[in-house]
Computed example of a mutant assay.
Amino acid sequence: MSCYKLKQHSIFIHPRRIAVSDILELAREKALEKGEGLNQAEVLQILELPDEKIPELMELAHQVRLKWCGEDVEVEGIISLKTGGCPEDCHFCSQSGLFESPVRAVRLDIAELVEAAKQTAKTGATEFCIVAAVKGPDERLMKQVGDAVAAIHSEVDINVAASLGTLTREQAQRLKDMGVHRYNHNLETSRSYFPNVVTTHSWDERRETLEFVREAGMEVCSGGIVGMGETPEQRAEFAVQLAEADPTEVPMNFLDPRPGTPFQHMEVMSAEDSLRAVGAFRLAMPKTTLRFAGGRELSLGDQGTEQGLLGGINAIIVGNYLTTLGRPMEKDLDMMDRLHLPIKALNSAV
Rank of each mutant, 00 (worst) to 15 (best):
I54H: 05
G37C: 09
D72W: 11
H62K: 10
A27M: 01
L66S: 13
G85T: 01
T83R: 13
G85F: 01
Q95P: 09
C90M: 06
P55R: 09
E74Q: 15
M58S: 14
G77R: 12
K30C: 11
Q63E: 14
Q63A: 14
A31N: 02
F92D: 11
C86R: 05
K34S: 09
E56G: 01
E74F: 07
Q95A: 13
I78C: 12
L47N: 07
A27H: 01
L44H: 11
Q40E: 15
C86Y: 02
I54C: 07
A41R: 15
E36D: 07
E33R: 14
G77S: 14
D51K: 13
I78H: 05
L49M: 08
E71S: 15
G84N: 01
R28K: 10
H62Y: 11
A31G: 02
L47V: 05
E88I: 03
A31T: 00
A61H: 01
W68K: 01
G37L: 09
G70Q: 10
D89N: 15
S80T: 10
Q40H: 05
P87H: 04
G35Y: 07
L44T: 10
L66G: 11
C86P: 03
L47P: 09
L38Q: 05
A27D: 00
D51C: 07
L60T: 06
E33Q: 15
E52D: 13
G85Y: 00
E88A: 01
D89A: 09
Q63D: 12
C69F: 01
E59A: 14
K53I: 00
H91C: 13
K53Q: 12
V75C: 14
R28F: 00
L60C: 09
E59G: 07
E29P: 03
W68Y: 08
P87M: 03
I78E: 06
A27V: 00
L98F: 10
I54R: 06
E76A: 15
T83K: 15
G70W: 04
L32R: 02
P55L: 04
E76Q: 15
L66C: 14
I46G: 04
E74R: 15
D51M: 05
L60W: 08
D89H: 11
G97K: 10
A31C: 06
E71F: 04
F92S: 10
V64T: 00
H62T: 00
G77M: 04
P87F: 01
V73A: 03
S80G: 12
D51E: 13
I46F: 08
I46K: 12
C90N: 03
G70I: 06
L60I: 02
V43W: 08
E74A: 15
I78P: 06
G35W: 08
I46L: 13
E74M: 15
L38N: 06
C69D: 02
P87D: 04
M58P: 08
E36T: 06
K34R: 13
E48V: 03
E59M: 11
E36I: 08
E74W: 10
G97Q: 10
P50H: 07
R28H: 09
